[in-house]
Design a protein around this nucleic acid. Sequence first.
DNA 1: TCAATCTGAATGTCCGGACAATCTGACTAC
DNA 2: GTAGTCAGATTGTCCGGACATTCAGATTGA
Lengths: 254, 254
Amino acid sequence: MPKPEVDPTVQLELSVDRSSPVPLYFQLSQQLEAAIEHGTLTPGSLLGNEIELAARLGLSRPTVRQAIQSLVDKGLLVRRRGVGTQVVHSQVKRPLELSSLYDDLEAAGQRPATKVLVNTLVPASAEVAAALGVAEDSDVHRVERLRLAHGEPMAYLCNFLPPGLIDLDTGQLETTGLYRLMRAAGITLHSARQSIGARAATTVEAERLAEETGAPLLTMQRVTFDDTGRAVEYGTHTYRPTRYSFEFQLLVRT
Amino acid sequence: MPKPEVDPTVQLELSVDRSSPVPLYFQLSQQLEAAIEHGTLTPGSLLGNEIELAARLGLSRPTVRQAIQSLVDKGLLVRRRGVGTQVVHSQVKRPLELSSLYDDLEAAGQRPATKVLVNTLVPASAEVAAALGVAEDSDVHRVERLRLAHGEPMAYLCNFLPPGLIDLDTGQLETTGLYRLMRAAGITLHSARQSIGARAATTVEAERLAEETGAPLLTMQRVTFDDTGRAVEYGTHTYRPTRYSFEFQLLVRT
DNA sequence: TCAATCTGAATGTCCGGACAATCTGACTAC
DNA sequence: GTAGTCAGATTGTCCGGACATTCAGATTGA
C-alpha cells in the first residue's frame, strides 16, 4: 500500500489592495485560483488554516472563508473539518457553463463560420409558443444557421426568439454567436433547459450537413431564460456526430 | 404593452428549531425552497428584506443571508441590490447533478431492471489505464450491464473501476445503481468529466439493444472522481435514442 | 502488540454591528 | 411636461468574536 500522501502546507505570497474597488474576498479568491492554475498550489497541498491566513493578510476570517468558499463551489478546493482545506487533484476545467457553439469553436482554435439561411419573422407554432411562453401564431423571430468549421458543415441551428428583445442583424449573426449578441443587447442569461438525443437524418437534414440519409445525428434542444424568468430563446440544433460531441465537467450538488 | 408586474412581498410563516442539530440557515433555506416548490411563494414575488426577516425569526442577518444565498446558488432566487430578493419565474428543476441512470429511471416511475452480463477482473487496456490513472495491464474491475425499462433494453453500460475500492456483488448490481453502491462504500463522489455523442450501431451493439445494425445510438463516456481527485470509475455507455435522451437544467456561472 | 481514549487542530455555525453601493420612486427645477 | 436630483430602501462587503463539531494522531491501557 502506498503511503498516504501527506502534502505539505504551502507558503504563498498573497496580498490585497484595500484601495481597490474590487472586493477583498474576490481579490483573494482570484489569487488563489491563479496559484492553482499556475501550479504554485499543487494538487493535494493544504492551504493553511483560515485564521492564520486571515491574520497574515490582515483580513477577517469571514472574508477569507468567503474567498475559499467560492473556490470550493467551483470544485477547485475541498474542505475537511479538523483537517484543513486542500487543492483537488483532478483536472477540473469548467463546470459546464451556458456556452455557445461559436465560443466553443473559437476557444478550440477552429475558425468558425456561420451561414445564415433564414432570418425572418414567422407566426409561432404550438411547439414554439409553448417553449417561449407566447401566444400561438404571434410573431417570433426565426433564425436558421449553418455552422461550419474548416469549411465543413458541422451543425444546423434553428432558433426562435420572442420579438422586441433584440435586433437580429444577419451580418452580425454571421460574425459572432447568438448568445454574445443577446448579452450585448443587455439580456442577462440565467438558466437553460436542455435535451440531448440522437436520431437518423432525414433526407433534407442529410443534405444540409453533407451526410447521407439515415446517418446518425446528434440533436440538442434548448430553452434559455433570463433572470426574470422569461424565455428568451428556443433552439433546435442538429450536429454531425463525427465532428462534434458534447464535453463537460460537472460537480456533485452538495 | 402589459403593465410591469409588481409582485407583492409575501408574508410567510417561518420558524426555526434551535434545539435541532440541523443548522439554522439550512432549516430556513429548506422552508423557503419548500414554499417555492409548493407555490406559496409565487414566481416574481419579493421575499421581504433580510433585516426584517432576520428579526422576525430571531436570527442574525448573516444566517438569513446564508440561507438565501444557497437558494440563489441553486437558481431559485435572484437578488437585486436596492430592490430585494425575488423568486425566479422559470421552472428551474435541478441544475444537473451527477446522477445515475438507475436513479433517473426510478424517479421517473419506470421500474428499472439490470442484467449483469460481465463482472470480472481484467488487465487495463491503454484507454482504461489512462482514464483511471492506473498502470497499463494492472487489474481493474470490468462490469457490463444491460439496463431495461418495462422489459425493453434501454442502455448498455460498460464500466471500469480500480481495484480495492469496493466489492462488486453481482446481486447488488442487479438491484441498484452503481453510484449508490459506491456512495454506500464510503466513496465521496466529487466531479465527473463527460462526453456525449452519437454513432451508428455495430452489429454486436445492435443485437444487444434490439436495434438494427447502423441504427443511431446515443453514447456517453464518463470518468468520475472522488474528492481526493482519484478517478473512481470510467464508463462507456450506449443508449437507444428512441428510449432515452439526456435532459438537464443548467445555470450560468457567475 | 493492538485497541480504546484523549487531545489538539481545523473547519462549521452563529452572532451583532458598521458602512458602502445601487436601485426605485418622488421631488424639484427648467 | 421633461429631465435632473435627491432620499429611502435594500443588498453587498467586512469586521471581530464565540462556541460546536469533527478529524487525525498521540497517548494510554489491556
